[in-house]
């Protein structure tokens, strides 16, 4: 139990660090980002809600009040879920804007991440088991090469080939005519719009898993418990799965959350290319329009997302590896 408590403690501490970092970044900037935002919004509409101005100042910094006071206000607004107004989507609140885009990205990233994990681990394990075979060299060399490609570029190429030249898939957006919701036309459109972005991510993301799994598995295959399993005359399938792969999988589980950060980065770029209505495109728009409340909130949200995934992976690791539960620090 100590293992789980420690991991949860780390989660809380990291969460605090990230929230604080998010507080500090705008305040470390030259000038007054909050003032700029308020002025820009005032240009759009004279009737700004004072409560919203307060929230904005809490997020981005206020000229009056010590840092400690500001920090208190900031945490207060955070707990209430008050992140201010979005400049690009005025008069909507940041939370509403993000709420619209949230599931697009979450589903895209979760599905691709899960798929690449499974594909990567299976390919990597099989390549290691059949080490030095043709399959192994194709997988290893192929991964090394594909790993050098930029996700944005892949996205543009896919767009060019399958979107414009062949016309098999829609080239931008998330859906066409249908009303968003759980109805068949919408789901169908969403899936066809998500196909190319997912494919662009799926070309790159399994590579880390493939190479990582292959390496740990090859290392594990030299271990005595594998030799003993072979000496025991167990079928290859059992040795490969229950002994080798089961152990080699462990580092991949801890790497899961860290890789998620990378996938999110890739998703931001891919969404740009496809004009996909997710958080990545939103981030691009926030950057373009200097929409600091939106940008800051997106940054916080993605980090917390990775953090939660990290916690889940750590807890899962504790279940999978009996040694971790007892190990110290």
């Amino acid at each position: 139990m100590r293992y789980f408590a420690r991991k949860f403690g780390f989660f809380v501490a990291t969460l605090w660090a990230v929230v604080t970092l998010n507080f500090l970044i705008p305040r470390l900037q030259p000038g007054d980002p909050a003032e700029i935002m308020v002025k820009k919004l005032a240009g759009k509409d004279a009737q700004l809600d004072p409560a919203q101005v307060r929230a904005m100042r809490a997020m981005l910094g206020a000229p009056d009040g010590s840092l400690v006071q500001q920090y208190g206000t900031y945490l207060g607004e955070l707990v209430r879920g008050n992140f201010g107004l979005s400049y690009s989507y005025y008069p909507f609140k940041v939370t509403e804007v993000i709420g619209q885009a949230f599931w697009w990205t979450v589903i895209l990233v979760t599905v691709t991440q899960a798929l690449s994990f499974v594909v990567g681990v299976v390919l990597g394990a099989y390549a290691a088991w059949r080490r030095n075979s043709r399959f192994d060299s194709v997988v290893t060399l192929g991964s090394t090469f594909l790993g050098t490609l930029q996700p944005f570029w892949i996205a543009l190429l896919l767009l060019y080939v399958f979107g414009y030249s062949l016309g098999w898939f829609p080239t931008s957006g998330g859906y066409e005519e249908s009303t968003p919701g759980l109805n068949f036309p919408f789901v169908q459109e969403a899936v066809s719009h998500s196909f190319l972005p997912a494919l662009a991510l799926l070309i790159v993301t399994p590579i880390g898993w493939i190479l990582g799994m292959r390496n740990t598995m090859i290392m594990n295959l030299g271990e005595d418990y594998i030799r003993l399993a072979k000496a025991k005359g167990l079928p290859d399938r059992v040795v490969a799965l229950k002994y080798a792969a089961r152990n080699a999988l462990l580092p991949s589980v801890t790497g899961f959350a860290l890789a998620l950060g990378g996938v999110l980065g890739g998703a931001i770029l891919v969404e740009q290319a496809f004009d996909y209505p997710g958080l990545g495109r939103l981030m691009g728009e926030a950057v373009e329009n200097k929409d600091y409340p939106l940008l800051q909130t997106l940054m916080l949200l993605t980090t917390v997302g990775v953090l939660v995934a990290n916690l889940v992976a750590d807890l899962l690791y504790g279940v999978l590896d009996p040694r971790a539960r007892r190990a110290q620090s």
């Binding site: 005595d224 418990y225 000496a231 005359g233 079928p235 229950k242 152990n247 999978l320 009996p322």
Partner: peptide
């Protein structure tokens, strides 16, 4: 495979590692 362990078995040198650590 039929001969293994039923007829021929072994204890390894560094048996610290001879048992699967996760089962």
């Amino acid at each position: 495979r039929d001969l293994r362990w039923r007829d021929i078995s072994t204890v390894f040198q560094s048996s610290m590692n001879a048992l699967n650590p996760v089962t």
